[in-house]
């Protein structure tokens, strides 16, 4: 029964609307994503890409709509979900080491009050090695380069041993070595039939790296296999000026609600 659902749809978002304070950021988002795909969420700045990710993960309150992951509400399938937040969202001068950060990926499985055990540390080491960072395991995290920090974050998500991964701008501001490492990692995850949903900025590489694209600009513009969705018409709709109207509408709604 469960298996069948896996085969049909990994992520279903239904009529999702999200507002920051009073300003709507996402309007009536509706889409489904089949399992085993590498998915890019693409759109201009302020399109609500990160917001979409955070609301799927229950980190933001929804104004309306619902989200299902493997046909279940998020809180029932947490153990199957991995998350890579934006690198800039934490203080990298925090007194901790790379391996310790990776070990945090195990905390969900470990549960309240209990401490990480030997096998958790071993797993953390293994996943650090998978992103080629084993040499830096005991480095303080502020002594790592931006790309290395990003790889630590990826290893932490791997340590969650999930079936579906959400990654917020993993390619932002990383060096060429890290970019290659991430691409290789994404391909490995695809081979393991995992679903990976990535907020992505770079239109140049999106066709090359991803087999499914979701175009977003406050509204859903298009959602589907790369070869069907990636065309001039859709890109113009996503990045074009037509949406200025939507942005102005949001402003006026915000004022109206004050």
């Amino acid at each position: 029964m469960k298996k069948e659902n896996h085969n049909q749809v990994a992520l279903e978002v239904h009529d999702l609307t999200v507002a920051y304070h009073t300003r709507p950021v996402l309007w009536n988002i509706d889409f489904e994503i089949p399992p085993g795909k590498l998915v890019a969420i693409v759109g201009p700045n302020g399109a609500g890409k990160s917001t979409l990710l955070k609301s799927i993960l229950g980190l933001l309150p929804l104004s309306s709509g619902w989200v299902k992951i493997f046909d279940n509400p998020y809180r029932k399938v947490r153990q199957k979900v991995g998350y890579v937040p934006q690198r800039g969202s934490v203080d990298w001068d925090f007194p901790t080491t790379a391996i310790d950060v990776v070990c945090m990926g195990r905390y969900g499985k470990i549960g309240w009050f209990r401490r990480p055990k030997k096998e958790d540390w071993e797993a953390a080491e293994k996943f650090l090695a998978q992103v080629e960072m084993e040499k830096f395991a005991h480095r303080q995290i502020s002594q790592l380069s931006g790309g290395q920090q990003q790889r630590v974050f990826l290893a932490r998500a791997l340590a969650q041993e999930a079936d579906i991964y959400f990654m917020d701008e993993p390619f932002a501001g990383v060096d060429a070595v890290t970019e290659k490492a991430i691409v290789r990692l994404l391909e490995e995850l695809r081979e393991q039939k995992k679903t990976v949903i990535v907020v992505h900025h770079d239109l140049q590489t999106v066709k090359e790296y991803f087999d499914w694209i979701l175009l977003l600009n406050m509204r859903l513009i298009a959602n589907g296999p790369t070869e069907e969705v990636y065309n001039e018409d859709n890109l113009r709709k996503t990045y074009g000026g037509r949406l200025a109207i939507l942005s102005q509408a949001a402003d006026e709604v915000a004022k109206g609600r004050l």
């Binding site: 980190l59 969202s89 934490v90 203080d91 945090m104 905390y107 309240w112």
Partner: peptide, 22 residues
């Protein structure tokens, strides 16, 4: 001592902690 691990993730990366279900 009891909440050490939880307080650590709260201080370092609260969003990630929330996504784990804490």
């Amino acid at each position: 001592v009891l909440f050490y691990k939880e307080f650590k993730i709260l201080s370092f990366d609260p969003n990630f902690g929330a996504s784990l279900g804490f």
